[in-house]
Design a protein around this nucleic acid. Structure first.
Length: 724
RNA sequence: GCGCCCGUGGCUCAGUUGGAUAGAGCGUCAGACUCCGGAUCUGAAGGUCGCGCGUUCGAAUCGCGCCGGGCGCACCA
């Protein structure tokens, strides 16, 4: 990290000069990178606030520091400018040399573990583009944390016993056969045949390659029918709590085939469905959807370490233990009267954040004895922090077993799921004696929960619960990574309605707004796989238009996939997280300008230079021995600008993680690509006959080619195709 | 009602410990050499940073008050 070294050395020089000249001890010196190179490479604005204290003009102070400081070798020139900035100019050759020497890029490994929980899609329907925002932001965070030397555990929480899964089960078991058959896209038939059809479309023990009409797409069709029928049919609506209760009861070791057989018999004899069979059926639906979600995310190079299941939290008594801990601290109480009578509530009145609320109590256990989602989430959070402990001090833990294995061909390549080889993706089990050798899950120093901003309130409650249990530091380390939702522009809604031939029945008011909220319950949304498919098709058209028909089929497909992923991931990263992303097809399908493909193109072009260089001149990228010789090189302004930008990666990544704002990183990447594209035209390499000039350009472009690959592939998960 | 978020050229957005001349992209207009690929580049036009008051050497950024929009404040998740 040559820039950090130069910065620290310069800061120390300034601090020492302040002591020597003005007797100031231990002044904090922050050096920033000024807006343009005419103002230097690093700048110290600290003379301005010191003016009052020292009763001298800022220019005088800056001048005194500039003249008396013993500057490190990295600083070659100083200048006092504007109202009193002290601008520093770096030794360009030295910086370029250091940046090219790869071993200087190593990071210290951090001695902690960080958990990032993301994706968390309800396993009752296909993923939509809103879920993609969650997963991409979560994955970007994971990549940046790893880059900074952290050990990261990625969790994708599976709510397999919630109302949403129950709703699809209700639909399969109780919707009129006619409606059901239509939703499933088959000829009307008996219910047991429809159930069989659904089971047959499940992916089994594999993670399937996504295509149209997958299992999760069928559920996507069924789900809105259920929710709309609840409103009109009370008898139907009464099925929901029945099914939910069955799910919570579990299905101990019941075989799926046996469960389906049981359901069939119930259909034929017109008798009630046995709860255990219903629960087993629901578990199969949740699992099948989960595998579809994994497949969708795999396309984007997103993977996980652990799949915690809500059913296991339930069966292993996580909540009971959390309840005891909260009870010991008297953080919860049983409400005897009022509107919350019969409920266990946690009072939030004690914390400033909730003090102004009308009702500062949050219900954790309902009057019927069941626990709310927030209650379960508190237990889960405590477990993540290693704080869910039994009375003997041992950790109250899950059981674990390998769920599937996976591997990738590179940092931004698609994830390939396989049976036995590669990295382990584990899932929790309800048998705490199950474990995976050498693996220890949970128990992190810091926890990021990537969740939609609309869940800020329950997330605050969870954090507060950790705090009232006396774990101040752990509460502070419980971070809600909140982001705004993805909505649809009215134009996007029209496109979907036109293509699907369906109408979402939006009223005047909704259509008048600048965007429409997506809703799985209403079936309003752009499915993630569908959108990716469209992107791939568009990208492939563009590839063929440029390269002609001589591109091999598989090669064009490969490039198109990379471009589609690049466009999508960049789109998600570049918008700041607390702004609603109003999805528009035209904008999302753009491949020119401030887009992923623009960045990819810069990387491809840079690589192309070196390919041609090897071919025509037998020269390659600048290696360490050549880099040594560059320290004395005179580097012109325009090339230097790119060199300095390349030096800033670590700073930018730290800042992005600190503020959970990956638009900073996206913008940095875009800036780099822009500088490169400009230089590409003004500084040709291959045709340049002057060997010295050619070496310098090679050096700068070597730096860029490496840098852009790291930022795109490692940090943003955007693949760099071989050609475009 | 209380809380959080958003308001920046025609459109979509950056601008994060307050820093120097507010940046991109799209769109519009005018251009790019027998030269490593034109998904690129050069140039032009386009801004009361919602409004007001304040803090500061300095405010798009911090504080207060308005205006407009969104989202929360469930025995849903």
């Amino acid at each position: 990290m040559p820039l950090a070294r130069a910065r620290n050395a310069a800061a120390k020089a300034i601090s020492d000069a302040l002591t020597e000249q003005f007797g100031l001890q231990g002044t904090e010196v922050h050096l920033e990178v000024p807006p343009n190179r005419a103002m230097g490479d690093l700048a110290w604005p600290g003379a301005l606030p010191l003016a009052r204290v020292l009763r001298r003009s800022p220019q005088q102070i800056a001048q005194a520091v500039a003249e008396s400081a013993s500057w490190p070798e990295e600083v070659v020139r100083t200048e006092v400018a504007g109202p009193g900035f002290l601008n520093l100019y770096l030794h360009r050759g030295l910086m370029l040399r250091s940046l090219l020497l790869a071993e200087l890029d190593l990071v210290e490994l951090q001695d902690d573990k960080v958990i990032v929980e993301h994706t968390n899609i309800n396993p009752n329907k296909a993923a939509h583009i809103g879920h993609l925002r969650n997963a991409v932001l979560g994955d970007d965070l994971v990549r940046c944390l790893c880059h900074l030397g952290h050990t990261v555990e990625i969790q994708n929480y599976v709510d397999d016993t919630g109302v949403q899964v129950a709703d699809v089960v209700v639909g399969m078991l109780f919707l009129p056969e006619i409606d059901l058959a239509q939703a499933l896209g088959v000829e009307p038939g008996r219910r047991d045949e429809l159930i069989r059809h659904l089971i047959a479309s499940m992916p089994g023990d594999v993670v399937p390659p996504p295509s149209g009409g997958d299992f999760d797409d069928l559920c996507w069709q069924v789900y809105p029918l259920v929710t709309s029928r609840y409103a009109s049919d009370p008898e139907f609506a009464a099925r929901r709590p029945e099914v939910l209760h069955a799910l919570e009861g579990g299905h101990q070791q019941l075989d799926l085939e046996e469960a389906v057989f049981t359901l069939e018999r119930a259909v034929l004899s017109d008798s009630d469905y046995p709860p255990r069979a219903v629960a087993r059926f629901a578990a199969a639906i949740a699992d099948a959807n989960l595998r579809c979600h994994l497949a969708t995310m795999a396309r984007l190079g997103i993977s996980y370490d652990l799949l915690p299941h809500e059913s296991d939290i339930l069966h292993l008594g996580f909540w009971q233990r959390a309840f005891e801990l909260l009870g010991d601290r008297e953080a919860i109480r049983l409400e005897e009267q009022g509107k919350n009578a019969g409920c266990w509530v946690m009072s939030l009145a004690g914390s400033a954040e909730f003090a102004d609320m009308d009702d500062p109590d949050k219900i954790l256990v309902r009057s019927n004895g069941t626990v709310t989602y927030t209650g379960k989430d508190i237990a889960y959070q405590l477990w993540k922090l290693g704080l869910l402990r039994d009375t003997d001090g041992s950790r109250h833990d899950f059981g674990y077993r390998p769920y599937i294995h996976w591997r990738t061909a590179g940092p931004a390549a698609p994830v390939r799921y396989e049976a036995l080889a590669g990295n382990v993706l584990a899932r929790t089990t309800s048998d705490p004696t199950n474990y995976i050798y050498g693996r220890d899950y949970g128990c992190a120093r810091r926890v990021y929960n990537v969740i939609d901003v609309r869940q800020s309130y329950p997330q605050k409650v969870v954090k507060e619960a950790v705090r009232v249990l006396g774990h101040e530091a752990a509460a502070d380390a419980s971070i809600h990574f909140a982001y705004e939702m993805v909505a649809l522009t009215p134009a996007a809604v029209s496109v979907i309605e036109e293509q699907s031939g369906a109408s979402f029945g939006l009223d005047e008011e909704e259509l008048g707004k600048s965007y429409v909220e997506m809703s799985g319950r209403r079936g309003i949304g752009v499915k993630a796989d569908d959108f990716l498919d469209v992107l791939v098709i568009q990208a492939e058209d563009a590839v063929r238009a440029r390269s002609g028909d001589d591109v091999a089929e598989s090669d064009a497909g490969e490039r198109a996939r990379a471009i589609a992923v690049g466009a999508l991931r960049y789109l998600m990263a570049r918008q700041s997280r607390n702004r609603v992303l109003a999805f528009d097809f035209d904008e999302a399908l753009a491949f020119e300008g401030d887009t992923g493909p623009y960045l990819q193109y810069s990387a491809v072009r840079a690589n192309k230079i070196f390919a041609k260089l090897a071919e025509r001149r037998g020269e390659g990228m600048v290696e360490d021995d050549e880099a040594e010789a560059l320290a004395d090189e005179v580097i012109p302004d325009d090339l230097w600008e790119l060199v300095l930008e390349c030096a800033r990666r670590r700073d930018i990544v730290s800042q992005a993680v600190e503020g959970l704002e990956f638009s900073l990183l996206a913008q940095h990447a875009h800036g780099l690509a822009q500088l490169f594209h400009k230089l590409y035209h003004s500084h040709p390499v291959v045709p340049e006959e002057d060997a010295g000039l050619r070496r310098l350009r090679r050096a700068v472009f070597t730096l860029f080619a490496r840098e852009v690959r790291v930022i795109l592939e490692e940090l943003l998960g955007i693949p760099v195709p071989r050609e475009m």
